[in-house]
Design a protein around this nucleic acid. Structure first.
Length: 413
DNA sequence: TCTGGGGTCCTAGGACCC
DNA sequence: TCTGGGGTCCTAGGACCC
């Protein structure tokens, strides 16, 4: 029997919320959303009920979405909350209108990471070729795993699903298909706690009727543009000539979309990768102005630099390009960066370079978010990390020209 | 009182080099 | 006179994903 390429996509069901429900089982079946995070809700809960185990705190004591104040979005909603139209990435205020009675909990990152490591190591014991796609998702190459071909991969998927549940008490959904693209869509077919197996011949019947947006890589902008061209489903895209797609979406994206619509994808499952950048950013409780809130901004700015430096050091990386990110009150984003002639993971050095960047950006408008990023990374102690670059030291010339033309540059930092 | 935080990849122009 | 061409790096912005 010939070997077929079998790729699985595994997605933990409502991961952040499910992890919270393990701590607070009394909330099972109730609408719960995870998000916001400014109010340390569960700290407060634990204070109020310090003498009571977490699982004994009455459900009626938990804070509700209708009482939520502040900025932020929903990270995860339980299936009970999704019944009301609440979903991830939705603003908390909008969600409160749809489901005011939902219970709000903040994310417990440590606990989430712990369960993330646990379910991934469980999978790796069964099938070694695993690609990380964030805390709650992985791709798994079933092709050469013993038993990975049986029932198109269904048996192995069942084994993984069952073992993950035994170890974590959490459920997941798995799609198995000829490639990552289709596997990713398949894992959504049967949620929660489902398994879907697809074969190449399922393309027309099961994939083409889906909305174009279901393709991983077609986002809100592309969806709008497709709709204007009267293309709504994946099948609509597949029906177009390749050349026509290229004319409308460019050589690269147009051709890729056409391939994707035909279910073609030969990307391998990548088990290891190096980080490209590390960053820290924060949205303020309320918009800040560079002049009036200078002190507060300065404090936040320094903290972000320290945090990103600490992240680099903890993970053993150094970086060469330092950048800032601003989001204005009107949601416009500006970025500036500067490449040093040496690698660094030093807080003050990062802060100084980021400060240079900040001088080149318009600070006349109120800010909503500030971020600091370090990119062009190298492993600390590696040969490149130790090498000083020759040639002209960091070119600020370009930047200096730019600076003089800015309307309201304020030398604040 | 809409719209988080941490990422990746792509495009595109100018500088600079051979 | 009539203006190469390929390659890399830097910077800024934008789409997209989890």
């Amino acid at each position: 029997m010939s070997t077929l390429r079998r790729i699985a996509h595994l997605d933990m069901d409502a991961f952040f919320a499910s992890v919270e429900l393990l701590r607070y089982p009394q909330l099972k079946g109730l609408p719960v959303v995870i998000g916001g995070g400014r109010r340390k809700v569960d700290d407060w809960l634990r204070e109020q009920y310090s003498d009571v185990p977490a699982s004994q705190i009455p459900a009626s004591a938990f804070p509700l979405l209708k009482d939520y104040v502040g900025r932020g979005v929903i990270t995860t909603a339980t299936y009970a909350a999704r019944q009301f139209g609440v979903g991830s990435a939705m603003g908390m205020m909008k969600a409160a209108k749809l489901c005011p009675q939902a219970i709000v909990l903040p994310v417990d990152f440590e606990e989430v990471r712990r369960y993330s490591r646990l379910f991934k190591s469980t999978i790796r014991e069964i099938a070694p070729l695993v690609e990380d796609r964030g805390v709650d998702e992985v791709y798994i190459d079933f092709t050469d795993v013993p038993g990975g071909q049986r029932d198109g991969g269904r048996s192995l998927a069942r084994l993984i699903q069952r073992t993950v549940f035994e170890r974590t008490a959490l459920t997941c959904s798995i799609g198995v298909a000829p490639n990552k693209l289709i596997a990713k869509m398949a894992s959504e077919f049967n949620k929660p706690n489902g398994i879907t197996v697809l074969y190449p011949e399922d393309l027309q019947l099961k994939i083409w009727p889906l909305a174009a947006r279901k393709i991983n890589g077609i986002g809100p902008k592309a969806e709008i543009k497709l709709a204007k061209l009267n293309l709504h489903t994946i099948g609509d895209i597949a029906a177009q000539e390749l050349q026509w797609m290229i004319e409308h979406f460019g050589k690269s994206y147009g051709a890729w979309m056409h391939e994707a619509a035909w279910g073609r994808d030969d990307r391998p499952v990548v088990t290891e990768s190096e980080p490209v950048s590390m960053s820290r950013e924060t949205t303020f409780e309320h918009d800040l102005h560079a002049v009036r809130d200078k002190a507060e901004l300065g404090t936040i700015f320094t903290r972000l630099c320290q945090q990103v430096a600490a992240d680099l050091q903890r993970k053993g990386y150094v970086g060469k390009t330092i950048g800032v990110k601003l989001r204005y009150d009107d949601f416009r984003i500006a970025t500036r960066d500067l490449t040093l002639n040496h690698y660094t993971a030093d807080g003050p050095t990062i802060r100084k370079a980021a400060g240079q960047c900040l001088k080149r950006v318009d600070l006349g408008q109120r800010l909503r978010l500030l971020g600091v990023r370090v990119s062009k990374l190298a492993k600390a102690g590696s040969p490149e990390a130790n090498a000083q670059s020759l040639g002209p030291s960091s070119k600020v010339t370009h930047a200096d020209v730019r600076q003089s033309s800015d309307e309201a540059t304020l030398d604040l930092f």
